[in-house]
């Protein structure tokens, strides 16, 4: 069994009102050093055997993320 992590965030040109709301809350709490917040999704997949990178890339890009508005990062286990 291997553990594969997929991170999904909105593309930079798509505004992220949830991230902005978090940033606003941080400002009210006195954390003035935080300049920007982008909220995303973090998926942890447990996969039988050695992960097939091509298949996982397909899973990430066609279901876990919507490529119209989101960027995706695939993290395969290191040998």
């Amino acid at each position: 069994m291997s553990r594969v992590v997929v991170d999904v965030v909105l593309k930079p040109e798509i505004s992220d009102p949830q991230g902005q709301a978090v940033l606003g809350a941080l400002g009210r709490l006195g954390h003035d050093s935080v300049r920007s917040v982008r909220q995303g999704k973090h998926f942890v997949l447990e996969v039988d055997g050695t992960p097939d990178e091509a298949e996982l890339k397909q899973i990430a890009e066609t279901l876990l993320a919507n490529p119209v508005i989101e960027d995706v990062e695939l993290h395969l286990p290191k040998d």
């Binding site: 909105l10 798509i14 505004s15 919507n66 119209v68 508005i69």
Partner: peptide
């Protein structure tokens, strides 16, 4: 329909939340 690729673009969280 957007998710299925039949229409272009995407629908996301309202700007005012």
């Amino acid at each position: 329909l957007c998710e299925a690729g039949l229409l272009p673009g995407a629908l996301t969280r309202n700007s005012h939340l």
